[in-house]
Design a protein around this nucleic acid. Sequence first.
RNA 1: GGGAGCAUAGCUCAGCUGGUUUAGAGCAUCUGCCUUACAAGCAGAGGGUCCUUGGUUCGAAUCCAUGUGCUCCCACCA
Length: 885
Amino acid sequence: MSTLATTYSPKEIESKWYEYWMKHSMFHSEPDDREPYTIVIPPPNVTGVLHMGHMLNNTIQDVLVRRARMTGKNACWVPGTDHASIATEAKVVAKLVQEGIQKADLTREQFLEHAWEWTRKHGGIILEQLKRLGASCDWDRTNFTMNEEYSRSVIRVFVDLYHQDKIYRGVRMVNWDTKALTALSDEEVIYKEVNGKLYYLRYYISPLTPEGGRGAYAVVATTRPETILGDTAVCINPNDPKNKHLKGKKVIVPLVNREVPIIEDDYVDVEFGTGCLKVTPAHDVNDYLLGEKYSLEVIDIFNDNGTINEKGQLYVGQDRFDVRKQIEKDLAAAGLLEKVEPYTNKVGFSERTDVAIEPKLSMQWFVKMDELSKPALEAVMEDDVRLFPPKFKNTYRHWMENIKDWCISRQLWWGHRIPAWYLPQGGLVVAETVEDALMLAKEKTNNPKLTAEDLRQDEDCLDTWFSSWLWPISVFDPNVPGHPEVDPNRDLQYYYPTADLVTAPEILFFWVARMIIAGYEWAGGYPFRNVYLTGIVRDKLGRKMSKSLGNSPDPIELIEKYGADGVRVGMLLSSPAGNDLPFDEALCEQGRNFCNKIWNAFRLVKGWTVDENEKQPEHSAIAVEWLYALIQKTVTSVADDFEKYRLSEALMELYKLYWDEFSGWYLEIVKPQLGKAMDKTTYEATLKIFDIMLRLLHPFMPFITEELWQNLAKRADDESIMLAQQPVAREHDEHVISSFDFAKQTVTAVRSVRQEKNLSMKEPLRLLVKGDMNAAAKNLAVRLANVSEVAPLNVDDKATGASFMVGTTEFLIPLEGLVNVEEERKKLQTDLAYSQKFLKSVLVKLNNEKFVSSAPEAVVAVERKKQADAESKIKSIEEQLQKLG
RNA sequence: GGGAGCAUAGCUCAGCUGGUUUAGAGCAUCUGCCUUACAAGCAGAGGGUCCUUGGUUCGAAUCCAUGUGCUCCCACCA
């Protein structure tokens, strides 16, 4: 008997095999003659920790990579991390604050030292966590968006774009983060509903009466009364009768007493508020546009940290939200506040620091997107890059067709510093290094005496995505864009384009679209063939799992509790591409249970003893033939599922194959009776089947399959299931499967009779048959339903008992004295009614001449078969009823 | 405001170009079992006006339209 424990304990097994794989460099890939299969990981934030989204994402990638590796491809999964400039900088700043250090008190170099220290301390934790999951990344290729080589490629790309005139500097209204003190791209702003107030303010018409008294006034509605300090106009709709009296007038801005013009523009909504709009060009995007159109003065009243500056005249140095409260009181006191209404509007917040965004005019660097985006749009529209699920094509197109220039400068220190140097007498040069910059500067200024100290490098860093859009290229060749003198890079040639990208739809534009753009621009084509977009992991209440809500389980704890394989199965069981994953620990439990099932089947098989002289029983031969056929069928359909990225379905098919078919039916049939030995033929077939099934399951459940595969047969020291091949489907006889299905149904029916009549499994039953009953059914009935004898059922047979039908074959289990005639009759009558109704519906079709003439012949034939079967069924039920008397 | 998508069993989802579907799976539920691999298990069972209403068709869960409800993306009326 086996000494294996009755439950599978994953812990030691997982670390044992992961170390084994690492020791033998089994994840490592080098270019060779095989077809490459490449995935680049969506690089997580370098100082991040693993969350459920990563779990899902990386499980999927690992399944794809492991399967590719087992189908003869040279699989390479490149891991790495992203420096995540603003996110990391925010963390470092917060940590310094805790230590009583302000960022402003540090020099750039000092701050970067702290940041690197932080990175060294926390960096890569997430990659270690991925190992627990079983991720088969090529760790030798681990990359980082801010390591030296990678950084060089980022700078090179900037310079290249600059020389192509695709990068420019300009004053623009940007989203200003008053906490991080940086501009944000539109994508980094999250709009939230905020319960605020709508303030109605009085703007008196100028001039005031000679005595300083007040006459008529305009009422302006605003949610941000503090911005009146920067008002430079009031705007009305030219077609608004309500405000006709204001045309051509000037009004006095409350409190600051600035005289500003009334301007007219269709932009103003007559219906909203009073139809009067205050215009603050420096602090509102739309106002800015109005300001440009009507050449209004621009008064920027805010400091970078959101406090009022001298230009605001009042409240100087106070925070914008404090001012809002104060100004309400002051306006009221001055009789300039008409009324205040509660009002809900949407306000932009910084994705990273969660402070309200302040629209702000500032000098920033931009990438011109119109030309760059064209090939990338086409790539997806023409399916050169395929999105899964394809519904994202629409979203993608919409975005790419309305793409705006990309603000790439960030007022941060942690990141790639913009390679632009300002000249002492104005102007700038852009170059890869300060040396190159100096050369250019000398040329440009005609001043050979210029030194590096005379040049001042731009203070800003590049947007994180300006480095990660190069990820699929730079991890293979940091010399891109290619310098002619550099040898063509073998890795890039071999691994690029990558096969699949697995990522979240949230970063379709941030990252995916931009990688496609970069691919066409610098690597001669698309960066990946397929994009698998995962869903969002949600909790039971449908909320997105997030740190702030505290509703996300710790993945490592889950692994401890259910095992990595169990969690992987749990993640994949209900996660079709693009669908959200409503996560429930019960799914991991199901995964763990499956591991246990696999484990116990192995225990059973391992416990068998083999007797060479034993002949293979017929039922075993039948079971082997059937399961082989079923496996072939499943292999084909699993391959099809993978083609379509239907991973959950592939897994579910294998789950059922292993649990129901293999464990539930096959093993129950072939297992020898207590104390008996097993015949060699069946034993070897079973080992072979076990081997096939482990290989099929390995991409999903790497650890337990390796453990059992290693124990299934003698293996060499450098062998691994992960290097074995996936089973290839062979032809199978569908008839074998359908015969066996008939047998299963027969067994189930007999068992059902036992249950209903409360008959113990130990009590043998006779089974009378009228019609076809194949050998499989006979064998299985005997083997699995304790049927002692199968005999023909004669029409005049007076036997009473429980009857049932499988297909058109009629069965009777004689049960003298045990049958309640009334109950039996009722049951038969229900069956009869059902069949009659069914027959009727079939006949309606067949009696419809149009159906018979227009439907394809095969469809009509099917209906005729239904009719014949139903008729025969009805006939036999009626006979049964007669017999009951 | 603009766009996209979804609605099938208690839950999560299959159901592909309309026809062997008076609709399938897993989980959950109920009943009976500690049967010598596994109670993290075994055996059996129940459960659905395929969101509404129309239309196209010989035939609709499937195609079209309308309504309802939900989700996401984009825009950001102060």
